[in-house]
Design a binder for these strands. Structure first.
Length: 634
RNA sequence: GCCGAUGUAGCUCAAUGGUAGAGCAAUUGAUUUGUAAUCAAUAGGUUGGGGGUUCAACUCCCUUCAUCGGCUCCA
């Protein structure tokens, strides 16, 4: 008997009898064996103890791989469930998966877990880890599994089993006195889990449905060493410093005020200047690419929203109507109906298409109180909206242009990592299947042509059309949707949009609804977090702070400031009676890109001393040289 | 909306039922300074709002609003 095991580097190991993945790892190096978490046998995940009895490709996973982390955290969630069951036997277990950063487990328990209890659970987990309990896999029939979990009184597990076909083989994992329904794989034993931190608790609906009972969730994370855990905790602290809500306060960019209302943003002068720069750039780019700018009202008659269908499908996100001379008006949650009426105000020939109407349109949506989040999720926000109205033949080219445009613009702001999603037809959608297929293919084809990685969100489209979304991550790795490119099979029909074709008869155009930044508020927040508040020169509200060393240089500093302002630089003078070090410190804390220090020497020689934010002193130089240095930064 | 936590001066935070306080910021004065905090004085509060318990409430209870972390939903 001969078994050949091929490893990812192409090397082959020969065995004359069945061998475990762990043994193969040991043959490569004992250190690898120690670090290994699980393995992938011909693409299927297995436990390290799994015996390999025929030729196979084998990949060993350590904590370095995503899969390794996932299994590690999943095993930790089992460990946590064991600790919880030991401490609180009355609690029922439900599910406990690994997530992007750590794991959670949902429990059914009347009282919430307190911080003190979290510490107790953590301590028990450490004790259980020290016992090095093996994670033992058992395979059983569904009937056996039902009996086992019924005997244990774990009703949620029975509910999960219900969804599994009767003939399937079920696996369970047992460590010590705890057994859980689980596909696996798992770590060899609990001692592999070295550093544990339970982070927070929350409520979570059973199976994610708000009609179901709310369970008590515990989130945690674990690492193979304390060093890694500490690094992670430091990362969280660093991320908190980049939080746009903190930066917004520290840099005096915006505020949200109780008395004004939740989810309504006040843009302070500094924030407004940044926003102005974003919007100016946005408008220029749109004009360069054949868009027409439009402006539309903030409210519209109820008839409009009836025609558009919003009162049917979007009402719970709309504010109550206001009465004006016996007519009902609604504040707008979207800009589309207005743009369509601009299109419909005239007849259009196929020769005019595509028509691209763009607007920074402020909309208001009712968001449930628990979901508001700084600038990321608000109740009044400005979409960088546009509607592209085109013929079916123009579709592919327009979609491709849009994706290129979106990525170009996001890159201009410094973003590099995007997550792209293609969402397809959901249940209960409007429009013809053939149209959906064509539009979805068009989206997919463009993404492929541009060689972009994307995930498919099956059935995740809007009810009116498929879409492409681009998401960007915030400081702690939460993804927020920015760009969205959505087809609309609904509104062109509802508003009877038409163009006259080459055949001299009316046709219904295709419409794409899109936002590149998503909303100015959310984009601003993401931008701020991405740069940690250290915005590039072109976006900084104050670009240069002039720092006279004594009152004697105030006039000279004013002269410099006027010259800079004439060149379009945004600068201010710190004329307070403070020491230079103090003024520098303040300018650094305000993250102003450049400081221009002028003392006796500079004034006498018509020079300035430049200092760059976070970089320090750049030396004394002539005015022109300083300008050149400053403007060489974008 | 649901689960949990939190709400004290502009900001960051003290004060566990017994006279609301500190640092920074602000104002005023002094200081005229060479690369991340000069010194002093002054002012700043219905302790988120409302109600209750108590001789007495920042502190305990109820309610409401907001914020934070999740769930659900979404740009």
């Amino acid at each position: 008997m001969s078994i050949s095991i091929t490893l990812p580097d192409g090397s082959v190991k020969q065995y004359d009898k069945p061998v475990s993945a762990l043994a193969v790892a040991t043959d490569i190096s004992p250190r690898l064996a120690d670090a290994s978490i699980c393995a992938e046998l011909n693409g299927k995940l297995i436990d390290l103890e799994h015996m390999i009895d025929s030729d196979a490709n084998l990949v060993l996973h350590t904590f370095k791989s995503e899969i390794g982390k996932e299994v590690y955290w999943h095993s930790t969630s089992h460990l946590m469930a064991q600790a919880v069951k030991q401490l609180y036997p009355e609690v029922l277990v439900t599910i406990g998966p690994a997530i992007e950063q750590g794991f959670y487990y949902d429990f059914d328990r009347e009282t919430p877990f307190t911080d003190e209890e979290l510490l107790l659970i953590e301590k028990r987990m450490q004790e259980l880890s020290a016992m090095a309990l093996p994670y033992a896999r058992t395979e059983l029939s569904k009937a056996e599994a039902i009996k086992m979990f019924a005997d244990m009184g774990e009703s949620y597990k029975l509910e999960l089993l219900d969804a599994i076909p009767d003939t399937d083989i079920i696996s369970s994992y047992r460590q010590g006195d705890f057994v859980d329904l689980c596909r696996g794989p798992h770590l060899q034993n609990t001692s592999k889990i070295k550093a544990i931190k339970l982070l927070k608790t929350s409520g979570a609906y059973w199976r994610g449905d708000e009609k179901n009972k709310m369970l008590k969730r515990i989130y945690g994370i674990s690492f193979p060493s304390n060093k890694e855990l500490n690094e992670y905790l430091v990362f969280l602290e660093e991320a908190a410093k980049r939080d746009h809500r903190k930066l917004g306060k520290d840099l005096d960019l915006f505020s949200i005020n109780d008395e004004v209302g939740a989810g309504l943003v006040l843009w302070h002068p500094n924030g407004a200047m940044i926003r102005h720069q974003i919007e100016s750039y946005w408008k220029e780019e749109h004009l360069r690419r054949g868009y027409k700018l439009v402006y539309t009202p903030h409210v519209g008659r109820s008839n409009l929203w009836e025609t558009s269908g919003h009162l049917g499908f979007y009402k719970e996100n709309m504010y109550s109507p206001m009465q004006v001379e016996d007519q009902e008006y609604y504040i707008k949650p979207m800009n589309c109906p207005f743009h369509i009426h601009i299109y419909n105000a005239n007849h259009h020939s196929y020769r005019e298409l595509p028509i691209r109407l763009a607007e920074l349109g402020t909309v208001y949506r009712y968001e449930r109180s628990g979901v508001l989040h700084g600038l990321m999720r608000v109740r009044g926000f400005t979409q960088d909206d546009a509607h592209i109205i085109c013929t079916p033949e123009q579709l592919d080219a327009e979609v491709e242009k849009l994706i290129v445009f979106s990525l170009d613009m996001l890159k201009h702001f410094g973003f590099k990592d995007f997550m792209i999603y293609l969402s397809t037809q959901p249940e209960g959608s409007v429009g013809e299947k053939a149209d959906w297929d064509k539009a979805t293919e068009s989206l997919a084809a463009s993404l492929k042509k541009l060689d972009l990685d994307y995930s498919v969100d099956e059935g995740g489209g809007a009810f009116y059309g498929p879409k492409i979304d681009i998401k960007i991550k915030d400081a702690i790795g939460r993804a927020w949707q920015c760009t969205t490119i959505q087809f609309d099979f609904n509104l062109p029909k509802r508003f009877n949009m038409q163009y006259i074709g080459a055949d001299n008869s009316p046709h219904q155009p295709f419409m794409i609804h899109r936002a590149v930044l998503g909303s100015v508020e959310r984009f601003f927040a993401t931008l701020l977090e991405y740069h940690g508040g250290n915005l590039p020169l072109w976006l900084s509200p104050v670009q240069v702070m002039l720092i006279p060393i004594t009152d004697g240089q105030f006039d000279y500093a004013s002269e410099i400031m006027e010259k800079m302002q004439a060149m379009g630089l945004r600068c201010e003078i710190d004329s307070r009676s403070e020491k230079m070090g103090y003024k520098i410190r303040e300018a650094e804390l305000k993250k102003i890109p450049f400081m221009c220090i002028v003392g006796k020497n500079e004034a006498a020689n018509n020079q300035v001393t430049l200092r760059q934010h976070t970089k320090g002193d750049l030396g004394t130089m002539d005015f022109d040289a300083a300008i050149q240095t400053i403007t060489s930064h974008k």
